[in-house]
Design a binder for these strands. Structure first.
Lengths: 207, 207
DNA sequence: TCACCCTTTGACCTGTTGGTCAAACCAGCA
DNA sequence: TGCTGGTTTGACCAACAGGTCAAAGGGTGA
């Protein structure tokens, strides 16, 4: 077992190198998926030798797992923030906006997640079936309540959430395609997307 | 070079085995991506030995390339069918429906495509920048025309198309997540999605 | 039926990948 | 300044992956 992993990170160097490795690994895993990525690639990206990297993490899987742990928190935060007591349409539009900002600011996290789900979520199925599903169920109930009180148009809350996830994450996961198709217009893709999605979900939800 | 690849497929066995291999490879590549898949895996899935598989295809890349070639045709067909002379909203909703049916009936093709784009589209960038972009530009022009003639509400045609792609393909690419989150409701996910998306795009486009 | 060519396979080769280890190296504190 | 324990590395290993090849096995038309 790697020395540094035997106990909680304590020295300055350990903190720095661990972070360095995770950043490099995020880049690599997000692009090639777990099986498509190699330790050498990650080490190279981090500017370390392979044995040096393995001094900080027990093995390839440990790096990946650590990334996924962190990911879920970040990932669920925006939905968590959806407030039952806020103005319904404002709340949902704010959620859309936050998700789109995450696609813009954390595209690698989005791709890491996409890769994992595409492969059948072998390593995070528990988290999907547990915390994620719980949170979605909870928020779906709130949205259904808003529907029933006629504060928003009648809508299937689950498929609404899927629509928000898919449309926003598309700008991270399929950025290659989006940018090529848009050509020069790609420069303003996130602003244009914000306008488009705000418009779309407003029209969908207005009672 | 593989014997069978030297000339156009001619014998019965060649036709059958080639098809068998491509089907197996689609399954494997769609799940693990190019680098994450092995020839042994594909051979195993097809019930063949590795050398036997390599008798029909020169190498791993040849199998993958063949799949991608076929994919683009299938992939662009529904958009191609969008008819300038049809009733605008009907045409676009029909496109949404067709795309959703493809997500339901050809999820592996969708995932293969998603995997390729996620990795930066190294092997189909030309096709994206060429035929795909050309087709999208052409159809975007039609949609813009409909907008300007007030047959549909003003909308950014490119981002409309992205929304259609993302929402429909989500049900193929993220099926693991969708099914887990929906739980027992998952049984009717495609019908529910059809209703939801029809509703959403109708409201978006109605002038 | 038999020859011919298509098909299949076991053995093998080479490069890659995940991972180990002992030894060298270095940072910081007594 | 000299320990001491954290850090780094080159060399190495076993398993795996892509791909080759010669030889054996079959299907089918003459």
């Amino acid at each position: 077992m790697a020395r540094a992993a035997a106990s909680k990170t304590r020295t300055r160097i350990q903190r720095e190198k661990t972070e360095l490795i995770l950043t490099a690994a995020l880049e690599v895993f997000a692009t090639y998926g777990y099986r498509g990525s190699t330790i050498d690639q990650i080490a190279g990206q981090a500017g370390l030798s392979k044995p040096n990297l393995l001094y900080y993490f027990d093995n390839k899987d440990a790096i990946h797992s650590r990334l996924l742990e962190r990911l879920l928190e970040t990932w669920l935060a925006p939905l968590h923030a959806l407030d039952e007591n806020g103005e319904p349409i404002t709340e949902i539009l704010a959620y859309v906006t936050r998700k789109l900002e995450m696609a813009r600011d954390f595209p690698r996290e989005s791709r890491l997640f996409a890769n994992e789900i595409l492969q059948g979520a072998p390593r995070i199925l528990d988290q999907i079936a547990g915390p994620l599903k719980t949170l979605v169920d909870e928020k779906a109930l709130i949205i259904r309540g808003w529907s029933q009180q006629n504060q928003i148009a009648p809508v299937d809350p689950y498929h609404l959430i899927f629509s928000i996830w898919s449309t926003t994450q598309h700008y991270a996961d399929f950025d290659t395609q989006v940018s090529v198709v848009l050509g020069p217009r790609a420069a303003t893709r996130f602003d244009d997307a914000a306008r488009h999605l705000t418009d779309m979900f407003t029209k969908l939800l207005r009672p």
